[in-house]
C-alpha cells in the first residue's frame, strides 16, 4: 500500500471511503464536501449531570464545551446535512435534563439543516424534546451511517461507539490521542464529547473491522490531523 495521506492547509486529512471523498477535521468531525454533510459521533452531552446523579461531581461545563466546538465547525463548513452518530446524550434522560440555555443553543445550531439523530447504546430512544429526525441507521450515496460498527458490513460504513484512540512511542516517549480509524472501506469516528476517553484501535474490540495492512489512524492534534500508518502504532 502506498497511501500517502494528504493534509490540507487547514489541517484536515483527506480520505476516501468507498469512493467518497471526506475530510477528517482535527476537532473530530468528518465532512463530506460534495454531499454537504458533516458527521460527529459520541457527543455524550450531559455526561456531567449524569455522573452528578450518582454523586460524582464532574465539572458542569461538558455540554457547553461540546456545543461551542460543534457551533464553530458548523459555522466553518456550513453543512446542509448533519449526522450525530449516536450516544449524542450520555443517558436516556440527558435531553430532558439539559438546561434550557443549552437546549436553545442546540436548536439554533440545528435551524435550517437536515439533522439526523442516529440512536446509540447510551441513547436508544430519540430525544423527544428536540427537533431533527431519528434513525437507527442512515444510507447516503454509497455510505451507511450507524452507531456501532457491524461485523461483515464493511464497505462504506461510517460508525462511532468505540471512541478510537491511537498511541505512538518515539524517542522513549509515548503520545496518545483520539483518532479516526479507517482502512479505506470503513471509518470509525473519534468521540466528539468533551469528557470522553479513548480505546486503542489495536484493542481486541476492533477485531475484524479493518484490514490490518491498510489501517490508518488519523490522530487528532492541536491544529492538524496526523495520519499514522497502522504498523507504527503501539497497543494500549
Amino acid at each position: 500500500m502506498s497511501a500517502v495521506a494528504i493534509v490540507t492547509e487547514r489541517g484536515s486529512a483527506v480520505v476516501e471511503i468507498a469512493g467518497e471523498r471526506a475530510l477528517c477535521d482535527h476537532r473530530g468531525a468528518l465532512v463530506f464536501p460534495e454531499l454537504g454533510l458533516l458527521a460527529v459521533s459520541d457527543l455524550h452531552l450531559e455526561k456531567g449531570s449524569s455522573f452528578a446523579r450518582r454523586g460524582s461531581f464532574l465539572p458542569p461545563y461538558d455540554t457547553a464545551v461540546t456545543l461551542a466546538k460543534l457551533g464553530m465547525l458548523l459555522a466553518e463548513y456550513q453543512p446542509g446535512i448533519v449526522v450525530s452518530l449516536g450516544d449524542s446524550f450520555h443517558d436516556g434522560g440527558g435531553a430532558d435534563r439539559m438546561p434550557a440555555v443549552f437546549r436553545d443553543t442546540l436548536v439554533n445550531l440545528m435551524a435550517g439543516r437536515d439533522w439526523y439523530w442516529i440512536s446509540g447504546n447510551h441513547d436508544p430512544e430519540p430525544p423527544r424534546v428536540l427537533p431533527g429526525r431519528s434513525a437507527t441507521e442512515l444510507a447516503v450515496s454509497g455510505l451507511v451511517f450507524r452507531h456501532e460498527p457491524l461485523l461483515g458490513a464493511g464497505r462504506g460504513e461510517i460508525a462511532g461507539h468505540l471512541h478510537p484512540g491511537a498511541r505512538i512511542v518515539r524517542r522513549g516517549r509515548s503520545v496518545r490521542r483520539a483518532c479516526f480509524a479507517s482502512d479505506g472501506e470503513r471509518l470509525v469516528m473519534p468521540a466528539f464529547g468533551s469528557l470522553t476517553g479513548t480505546l486503542n484501535v489495536l484493542d481486541r474490540a476492533y477485531a475484524g473491522l479493518f484490514r490490518r495492512d491498510r489501517l490508518m489512524a488519523y490522530m487528532l492534534g492541536a491544529k492538524r490531523i496526523y495520519p499514522i500508518a497502522g504498523h507504527m502504532l503501539v497497543p494500549v
Binding site: R170, V175, M232
Partner: peptide
C-alpha cells in the same frame, strides 16, 4: 535523561513525516 517538555506535537509530526518518507522512498 530527557527534558519532559511539550514536544508531543513534534513527535506526532515526525512520525507522520517518516511515513511519507517511507512511502515516497519505497
Amino acid at each position: 535523561e530527557q527534558v519532559p517538555g511539550e514536544a508531543n506535537e513534534v513527535l506526532l509530526g515526525e512520525t507522520a513525516d517518516s511515513l511519507i518518507e517511507e512511502a515516497m522512498g519505497g
